[in-house]
Design a protein around this nucleic acid. Structure first.
Lengths: 232, 232, 232, 232
DNA sequence: AATGAATGAGCATTCATTCAT
DNA sequence: AATGAATGAATGCTCATTCAT
């Protein structure tokens, strides 16, 4: 039935100059399911932006749906509740971050280089996704389950990488428990460095080489690096 | 017992030059000012408890005053607003924590011992003050100014200690900027270790020696300790 | 037991240089009753000022007692309630106003001159007592009984004067009911003139001669003064 | 009845170019917009009633919404705040009153007749809208901006009428300033007559002819009507 | 009688969620 | 499925009044 379609098209074409956009639903190129998924994504991304700017507490349904350009009621066609959305927010963005950093890390082979790629990649990600820091930190409060899941995910990936790297380097394996704690420490260190960087009112567009250097130095030698043994 | 009265009076007389007036209440062992301070403390402590249990968002005036055993209106005789209380909460408890840990650290002289006293003291403090973790972490969201102040306070104290320890140990001094970053990393590491410990559903009454050991090992040798140079 | 008193006195005397005032309770020149009456007056006057500035709704006990330099609790030693004070406010100030204007009116004999003295005296009173307008107008809402009493008082005095003036002038007497209505109209006219004057943002220190002239002209000739009979 | 639908549709189609969208709801006789406006009116009218009965201070959102038969939250879908409603209350009812009186005045041509229609119409309006008096008088305190606007509106309309009537009657024009003052006096006189009438506990269902007569007499001849010149 | 802290009822406002269209 | 208005529970804060000292 290509004829009716044409008719429709010409109508749409006439409106096209008036309607701002979004009115181009002709070719079923975008299926129902696809449109549905698009709205879900729009809501999630809007939520990410809003939480980044106003925090979870300030991320009202009104704000989120406004940012996503849908009506308030529409929200509940896609999520059971505000908390349900919050629960999906960090895992989704978090995975994206992990993938991005992973790609950078994989370009290196030496352990230290890979670690530097990690910290640098993370700081860079925070630059390009300014809202992520709040999404991450406040999740502990507003979406504890999601936060736990994200941490577990990080530990799994980071821990696996560490174990593999150590094995490849010929170092003795560490028990999982210890690996886990090490990962937590590393994540804590890097998140607090990010915190300090934000608080300092630094230019958020620049990754501070100094920060990277300090981080790497601590990883390399620990804290007592240059301290005589009998004192340390 | 008219005698004590006299005694009290003479005391008042001495204070008379300082206190503007109103200091002429004798009998009560607990003076107006003392009772007043007691209520303020009760409110702060109640707030600490409530925030620890329900988070800042769940720390309604109703809950706080109920926990402090005063009427809701009484709250506003002591704090201008809920936020004003929140702003005082972390600094006050935080300083208390710093003092407690400081006392333990001062019992040691060797750098590593002191550092171990610090981490151990911190974890112990978290055990005895189970609400502190939330008070601290959520402050970043709900009392950002207080959080900044607390971090600055930590950096100042911890940084000063580190510099002194390094000097005493004969190590070359580090620029303030670097010290600051190191402190942030250490605080991040220990807070995330605490996070992991809590999440793990561990017995909150026990300080995990494993955690302390892992932390100390990272401080001593960094991450690449046992890794051949040409690989790291 | 005059002895202890002396002791106390000497103590007070020592403080006298420090305490700002009010601490001079020596010579029983001011009797207990007088002091009591002084506080009552202070409260009433403070209330007048506060109501004038903030309105009845904004005249909290806190503000009034602060303005009167007494403690909040003291208030209830002199008035049963806030409303009880409000109930006394307008009558008291109102009578004062009546007396002041009356004195001016009595300096004239011709009816029109007396009337002009009245309107001019009223506007002048509003200048020297800027808060009176609100005390009067808002009383209708916040102290209706007092407002009624004040109006009755005005009607009685003004009405009596009008009747006497008319009799002296040889005009036929008017029934009380009509006199009453006339007084209300005159009071309404002058209060609304005052309202207009205030709203206009006029210099509150100047009595507008134009206003007086317009008022007098209306009193003299009515509204249809210069209008041919067959049209009016 | 599918036909009416078509009809409706064509109407919609015509509007389609104007209305942005959302106008495609057919069936319901009461459209969304109509129902919305109905609620707004219900709230305003409820507010009028409640303010009339309890005053602005007693017009809580709870009372207003209860009187309007909507939930408390609904209020804020129509007004930004309680004050925002108050700001609209007097202007809206005031304009209604002006229109009603104006219709009556326009039935007369002679100046005095028109003026009598005004005062009578006003008193009648107060009878049929018993709450208006408080809405008007307390507005000076609780919605000063609205009160100013209403007064300005009254002055504009009443003043214009007076000027036109005088011109038609062949009387010399008066400067605007004087007209304005005259209007204020007339409004004051009539409002205070209304006040007296209410206070007197008179049957609120009757317009007092005596009041009208007294008012008209004052307008006609002023206060010194029947007084020998040499005394007045 | 004076004090000033304690009390708790009262109220405007917000916002997640529901629901009729 | 989309809409957006309706809902009502929840909460911070004010302030007249009480009361122990």
């Amino acid at each position: 039935m290509p004829r009716p379609r044409k008719k429709t098209k010409s109508v749409d074409a006439r409106n096209a100059t008036q309607a701002p956009a979004a009115a181009r639903r002709r070719k079923p190129t975008v299926s129902r399911a696809e449109k549905s998924e698009a709205i879900r994504r729009a809501l999630l991304e809007a939520a990410g932006t809003v939480v980044g700017r106003h925090g979870y507490a300030g991320a009202s349904i009104a704000r989120i749906t406004m940012a996503a350009n849908v009506a308030q009621g529409t929200f509940y066609n896609y999520f059971d509740s505000r908390d349900a959305l919050f629960a999906q927010l960090l895992p989704e963005i978090g995975q994206f971050m992990i993938d991005e950093i992973g790609a950078k890390v994989r370009q290196h082979t030496r352990l230290a280089d890979r670690e530097e790629a990690r910290i640098r990649g993370y700081l860079q990600f925070l630059r390009t996704h300014p809202g992520f820091y709040r999404v991450l930190r406040e999740a502990e409060t507003f979406a504890p389950e999601a936060h736990r899941a994200h941490m577990a995910n990080m530990v799994a990936g980071y821990g696996r990488a560490l174990r593999a790297e150590r094995e490849r380097a010929g170092a003795p394996p560490l028990p999982d428990q210890q690996i886990e704690k090490i990962v937590y420490m590393l994540l804590g260190a890097r998140d607090y460095l990010a915190m300090q960087y934000q608080e300092g009112g630094n230019d958020p567009a620049t990754v501070d080489d100094e920060t990277v250097a300090t981080y790497m130095r601590a990883l390399r030698g620990g804290l007592f690096d240059d301290i005589p043994d009998d004192v340390a």
